[in-house]
Amino acid sequence: MSEKFNCRIKNDLGELAKISKAANEFLEPLNLDPKIVYGVDLILEEMLTNVITHGYEDEGTHEIDVSIGLDEDEVSIVLEDDGAPFNPLSLPWASHSADADELMEEGLGIHFVRNMMNAMQYRREDEKNILEVCIDL
């Protein structure tokens, strides 16, 4: 079993609905655990919101490549953007005792992603941020 989905979106928050719909059309026939599908949706929304909101210093249009791959034991999500260098793995982990207020400040989105994924890798290549997030099946 190996399936792949690719989509290119613009750096506009309005594009999130489009990618969510397209990703779900890809995932639905695969009969995955609904919890995995929820995780993919959440990772896409939180990480893309971050890139679109904080990644660009100019007002111009940029493209972000999104791919989702499925094999026997994991789903992998890869995001490629030409925004400012940003490694989400460099953010501090929220402590176990962190309350909701602290999490809001430290970044609730990345906190969710860290709780939903099993592995995350970042690299900067050809002036692009490439983030891969994997969820075990």
């Binding site: 909701a100 999490l103 609730l108 969710f112």
Partner: peptide, 10 residues
């Protein structure tokens, strides 16, 4: 998701 965020605490 509420539990991960700690929102169930308040």
């Amino acid at each position: 998701v509420f539990e991960i965020a700690g929102f169930d605490q308040f």
